[in-house]
Design a binder for these strands. Structure first.
Lengths: 303, 303
DNA sequence: CCGTGGTGATACCCTGAAGGCATCACCGGA
DNA sequence: TCCGGTGATGCCTTCAGGGTATCACCACGG
């Protein structure tokens, strides 16, 4: 009748490894048990999920379908459990995630005016975290940057902001007002986990260091390992003496969105959503006022 | 460890009725069993879900939170099971739901050009069905009309279309070119399940008949029980000898959106989504060409 | 004041599913 | 041919889920 989430979790383990023994080991159960559970799941669903023949274990069509669906479902279940725990310990607390450079304060103020009893908690998130943290409930709502995997999320665009190029201080273009994409055509890129720092090209996968977060990016750029791109607002909050920022107007702007787990239905979250949309312009401004007036003078400030 | 969906279903039954005995009856289990399952769930979650005191059963904060989350989660689980069954029986089949008056053919054609192996199945849906059918997987993607409960869905606007007033043939305004909202201020409304037919006012809940679907609406309007409003495209597909349609330009237009269950992540569905967005203008046109040219001449045609 | 009906909780039993261990059947490679 | 490694089976134990009977509690009417 009801899907058994334990069996589903077992299934995912087997599907990931295509190997019953190792999956059982990972799950800390005996292999025969796992074999039986999978068979039971297949019987319950009325569909065979794996083909077990001489050449090992492989997924069937139904198995592929189930694997695609199982992850989000298990994440939702996990999120439910987490939220109930929160509600039980009476913590009227809204966890808001935000990507570097996006100020949450305006929306939080507007929201707390309507919900004085709810504490707004903020937490920095990185690109590779933004979707999972929403899905499993570690954050209730997130200020994210595209691209993002929208599966299981409700994503609403808020505003865009221009990108800037991140160059080492001694770069050959350091004195210019602004640069174009063409100017930087031959430059190596710092390989960042976040694709938004590589808006038009991807470095070779084995090209070099994989970095995560703005601070590390700056460090690598300063070390001359490559250049990168950032949303302009991030430059307000991060600087590095050996790094300069430079407008690059012909690059497509960065899209900031608001996202919640789609399975999430709560008036509190909706109200924050509304507050965030109402204060979107103010939020966008915050990234503006420093850098925009300085323009390329930022070079002298940071350089 | 894993949430038990059976217990969750039991919990919803109790939470809906706030009565263990009747919930147990509904679930076809004995009341003591239900008591124990709920206690087990509470222990599993580490939170009490109900307060049971002299004045009966009531939800705690944690219980309210769980009730809000349980429905979507159970629906997702159901949808997963359904999709696996589909995949198992090898049916490369995409179920597309659509509200009255929205032609699916253009998008289906564009989609089938890219996916010759997938059969596009279409199914009419009503307002009160549109969200549940997406959530539990009876349809994979839906052409819906606002308002819709977006919880658990990904909703993307496609286009808008003007509304028309639906009047009985002998109505005092029957000869006019068009009407305004003010002209109809005093008129009773046919109480339709779909709020989009009552864009600005709601009839009194006990005012009269509750109807569902365009055909019934026309019947009731013809019988003089009230007037109604429809998206213009619906008038292309439905007519009634005793009913006339009349443009009402000052009414906010009807918003047609594309929706999928947010937990759904599938390239096939994504491709249909793309196809539908690409053909949105054509789709909008289909509702246009007959009524728009006729204008108020539709009176003479249908009247 | 005391029954009485209705509520959810508890006690006790039985069945079946989930876990473990030992073992089998099968296959590819030395 | 044997052997290592795979998943499947058989058999046992434990415990969760189901049932019935009953208790404890409370509101209410006589």
């Amino acid at each position: 009748m009801d899907l058994d989430l334990r069996k589903l979790r077992y299934f995912v383990a087997v599907a990931d490894r295509l190997h019953f023994g190792r999956a059982a080991d990972e799950l800390h159960i005996a292999q025969p048990v796992l074999s039986r559970q999978i068979r039971a799941l297949e019987q319950d669903l009325g569909a065979s999920l794996f083909t077990r023949d001489r050449h090992g274990v492989a997924l069937t069509d139904a198995g592929r379908q189930l694997l695609a669906d199982a992850g989000p479902l298990l994440a939702s279940a996990h999120a439910v459990r987490r939220r109930v725990s929160m509600a039980a310990r009476g913590s009227r607390r809204l966890m808001v995630g935000f990507r570097a450079g996006i100020p949450v304060i305006p929306a939080a103020r507007a929201f707390e005016a309507r919900h004085p009893d709810v504490v707004v908690d903020v937490q920095r998130i990185e690109w590779d975290d933004q979707a999972p943290m929403l899905l499993d409930g570690r954050i209730d709502v997130g200020y994210v940057r595209l691209p993002i995997d929208e599966a299981g999320l409700r994503v609403t665009p808020l505003y865009t902001e221009p990108r800037v190029a991140v160059l080492p201080a001694g770069h050959r273009l350091a004195g210019k007002e602004e640069v174009t994409e063409a100017d930087l055509a031959g430059e190596p890129l710092v390989w960042h986990a976040d694709p938004s720092t590589q808006p038009t090209r991807r470095p070779h996968p084995n090209a070099g260091y994989l970095v995560r977060g703005v601070d590390e990016t700056l460090e690598h750029v300063a070390a001359g390992r490559g250049i990168s791109f950032l949303a302009r607002s991030a430059t307000v909050f991060y600087s590095h003496p050996e790094v300069i920022y430079m407008p690059i107007p012909d690059l497509a702007p960065d899209q900031v969105c608001l996202a919640v787990a789609a399975s999430r239905t709560s008036p509190v979250v909706d109200d924050f959503f509304t507050a965030a949309q109402a204060t979107a312009e103010i939020t966008a401004e915050c990234g503006n006022y420093e850098m925009w007036q300085l323009g390329s003078d930022a070079v002298s400030k940071h350089g």
